[in-house]
Amino acid sequence: MKPLDRTRGVVEMAHGGGGRAMARLIESIFLTSFANPLLNQRNDQACFAVEKGRLAMTTDSYVIQPLFFPGGDIGALSVHGTVNDLAMAGAVPLHLSAGFILEEGLPLADLARLVDSMGQAARAAGVAIVTGDTKVVEKGKGDGVFITTTGIGIIPDGVAPSGERARPGDAILLSGTLGDHGVAVMSRRENLSFETAILSDCASLHGLVAAMVAVAPDLHVLRDPTRGGLAATLNEIAQQSGVGMELVETAIPVKAQVRAACELLGLDPLNVANEGKLVAIVAPKDAERVLAAMQAHPLGRDAARIGTVIEDADRFVVLKTGFGGTRMVDWLAGEQLPRIC
């Protein structure tokens, strides 16, 4: 049995075979990066007690290409994304599980790097990856690595944000600039590389949510505008709540570099993915307090009030343009593709 060569080695079928090679992979890569008491027990499950109260549970799969992008990687993303899905219920994230599907031939150095980044992200977020699974598929049957993380968290009493709770008059708050993640990833895609200093915004948002809950526990809606961008998120909420929304374009923060990249590619920043931003819909009386709390948190420095929930039987999301007109903000039809002219 040869030792694991973390610099030049690659993932082999044997690493998923349940034998000694797999044990060595788990020990030298996963256990070192994720180390925590529950995982270290090396059982097939993690057993733990929870406080009384409501639990939130969520799962998400990560298949991003490239695996490493400016400001993050698939490992960090698989922690932040799932932590954020918990945080959007107002939950305090507790534990994560992680399932890996590795493609034969993936350099072990890459695997070690992204697993390490995952461990760091989990530690920074104060969550533990307490159980996991690894499978290896033949070369050509995967895309390097796919990761699925499942998370559970505890929801404090009196906190119950939900998509159907937006009411006419509520304020729509956005925690920061739009499109950073999507543009950072696109800048590294095959045949589309362009120079940009934009980094992915991927970050765990439960700390920001806790700061918001501290000043106003009754947040009506929380959601992170990931795939489909702000446009999809607000349309989802409008549908769920049976309301319309009116946005003010000039109030929506977008970095100049992101605007320029979108301009070049014919994309709309409102449709571009984010991984470290949230939208909060709050009662008018709470709006200023919550906004101030967001702006005081490092992940909400650029937070802004971007619009208002209105009554509208058609459930349209409408934008007042900086140019002085109005337009609808619709879902995307299918995947966002660049225009030719």
């Binding site: 709309d268 934008l319 007042k320 343009t321 140019f323 002085g324 007109g325 337009r327 225009r339």
Partner: peptide, 12 residues
Amino acid sequence: THAIFRYGLADL
């Protein structure tokens, strides 16, 4: 066409 709709020109 895109500019007219995107910026809401008809309102102006």
